[in-house]
Design a protein around this nucleic acid. Structure first.
Length: 548
DNA sequence: TGGTCCCGCCAGTCA
DNA sequence: TGACTGGCGGGACCA
């Protein structure tokens, strides 16, 4: 089909020169066939529920669409919405009997956008094997048919790359920095450490068996390609616990794979920008959801990959499949066990072990979910499981090479080895579950629902196993919906969340500049009380919580 | 003010 | 050589 003639730039853009971002088209006559009202309807139908509700509210209270259409014009062009519109054209599971080819020109023309924008979407979709490139300007639509297989593959690669551990290190490092004055030096040391032990090799595009990558510029750009970045980003969600991954952490991991010289602020900003693009597409696919992580330094954008994981094939089904293939008792084996399948089976066993343990970080998650009190039991269990894994990771680090002074997450070997699945009993509201000590020195806490009125913090601590003279205090701060605005978290947890936990998080009082009521001082005071409690011999654990 | 991300330049690659 | 592809970052918009 003939390509549509390129739209001439708006007058304002011509006046301002080619290097400026055009203003929002106040005086630009719309060349769209739609009226503002139909635009709005289209937007509402295509947008996510949040946007839909927001737009509906605005529409109801303001029938004059003048300013509204200006706001919409930007939203309408957003990559996320564009992706929504793109996805609406194709079924989740394409019918193989019909032609599923995609012509970029057609799509760009019908969606009334530049091809450049379509490339961004296609790259992310291609990273998930939802489309594959047929030829120049042509793709084939696979929808979600290959998604489970792709995600399983990406998870495996992500585990091999040890992204989970790397995220732990980065989170812990950032957390340490919050209380650290010698930031630059520490940062440099940390980056060198990451270089040394990150263990990750330069990674290329992950292909599925039988799916050949036919991207253009394949040799020159593949290492920085949006496809590869997208795959890595997805991997982070697949191996991370908690499932919330902040853009900061993701960008640091991605930068960590580049040259050291890339680690300047501009490169970081660029990575973040690309991650926004990827995240917008993944959000449109409803694979991740945007949330925010609150740290002492402020509110950071992050994404929750829960929905992404639900697309993974259940490990048990893979397990059953391999069982049926290889170990049917009394039946003659139909297949020879190939070496790669032996490895796969072993990997599945490993995965099974890992599913019961995963690391976390001392972040505070602002949840917009109004049902969060009923999820406290899950959170507590997750917290416990994650901490157990961290304990093991920390132990591994201690025994491998890290000096004791670098880590405060101290756990004795028997404790680390005593990891087991803890089934939290169903408890009436207000009851606190008791987890026997042989399972873990940590005690998850279920807050009484009646007490959940405002933001509150939960602390889980355990005493220091001898002889390492340190202990760990962790907290998660939750805020009730509608109350997550400007409130700053108080008495956030400190130390002990992973391999790089540092006792300095507790020993450092505050700078002379800090006021007496600053979070740091209050944290320090709270921590010193905990320290006193934990010095008591025979104490198994301690839980504190406080409304914030 | 910091987060978000539209926009299009321009260079590498391909046919 | 022109078209395709996509890395990249300026700067506008927004909360």
């Amino acid at each position: 089909p003939p390509r549509p003639p390129p739209a001439s730039p708006p007058l304002s853009q011509q006046d301002m020169g080619s290097l400026t971002t055009p203003t929002k088209g106040r005086n630009v006559p719309s060349c769209e066939p739609w009226t503002p009202t139909s635009n709005l309807k289209m937007l509402i139908s295509a947008a996510s529920p949040e946007i839909r509700n927001r737009e509906k509210g605005r529409c109801e209270e303001d029938l004059g669409l003048g300013e509204e259409s200006e706001k919409i014009s930007r939203k309408e062009k957003s990559l996320g919405l564009l992706c929504h519109k793109f996805l609406a054209r194709y079924p989740d599971y394409p019918n193989p009997a019909v032609n599923n080819d995609i012509c970029l020109d057609d799509v760009a023309g019908e969606l009334n956008v530049e091809r450049r924008r379509i490339y961004d979407i296609m790259n992310v979709l291609e990273s998930l094997h939802m489309v594959s490139r047929l030829a120049k300007n042509r793709y084939t639509w696979h929808g979600r048919s290959k998604l489970p297989q792709t995600l399983a593959t990406l998870r495996k690669v992500g585990e091999e790359q040890r992204y989970g551990q790397q995220m732990q290190q980065i989170r812990q490092h950032s957390f340490d920095q919050e209380l650290d004055f010698d930031e630059e030096k520490e940062n440099e040391e940390f980056l060198q450490e990451m270089d040394g032990e990150g263990g990750q090799k330069e990674m290329c595009f992950v292909e599925l068996p039988g799916v050949e990558f036919k991207g253009a510029s394949v040799n020159s750009r593949k290492d920085k390609s949006l496809r590869v970045m997208s795959q890595k980003f997805v991997m982070l969600f697949l191996v991370s616990t908690p499932r919330v991954v902040s853009l900061d952490v993701a960008a640091k991991i991605l930068i960590g794979e580049d040259q050291i010289m890339d680690r300047d602020k501009n490169k970081f900003k660029t990575k973040i920008r690309r991650l926004y693009d990827i995240a917008n597409v993944l959000s449109s696919l409803e694979l991740i959801k945007k949330v925010h992580v609150t740290e002492d330094r402020g509110r950071k954008p992050a994404f929750n990959g829960l929905d992404l994981r639900t697309c993974l094939p259940p490990r048990s089904s893979i397990d059953n499949c391999t069982k049926n293939l290889f170990s049917s008792p009394g039946e003659k084996r139909g297949f020879t066990r190939h070496h790669s399948l032996v490895k796969l089976a072993k990997s599945i066993q490993d995965d099974r072990r890992k599913i019961n343990s995963a690391p976390t970080s001392p972040i505070k998650i602002i949840s917009n979910d109004s049902s969060y009190p009923s999820k406290m039991a899950q959170l507590a269990a997750i917290c416990k499981i994650q901490l157990d894994q961290q304990s093991k990771d920390s132990l591994d680090k201690l025994t491998e090479k890290r000096p004791v002074s670098k880590s405060s997450m101290s756990v004795t070997e028997p404790q680390a080895k005593s990891r087991s699945v803890v089934q939290l009993p169903v408890l009436p509201a207000g009851a606190l579950p008791y987890i026997p000590h042989q399972c873990s020195p940590l005690i998850p806490v279920l807050l009484p629902q009646q007490q959940v009125r405002g933001p509150y913090a939960v602390y889980v601590a355990h005493p220091p196993p001898r002889p390492v003279p340190s202990f760990a205090v962790r907290s998660m701060t939750f805020e009730s919906p509608g109350d997550c605005t400007k409130r700053s978290p108080v008495a956030s947890g400190s130390g002990g969340t992973g391999p790089r936990s540092s006792p300095k998080a507790l020993k450092r009082p505050s700078s002379g500049k800090s006021s007496e009521n600053s979070p740091k001082v209050r944290r320090s005071a709270a921590s010193s009380k905990v320290r006193t409690c934990l010095d008591r011999p025979g104490l198994l654990g301690i839980i504190l919580w406080a409304h914030v």
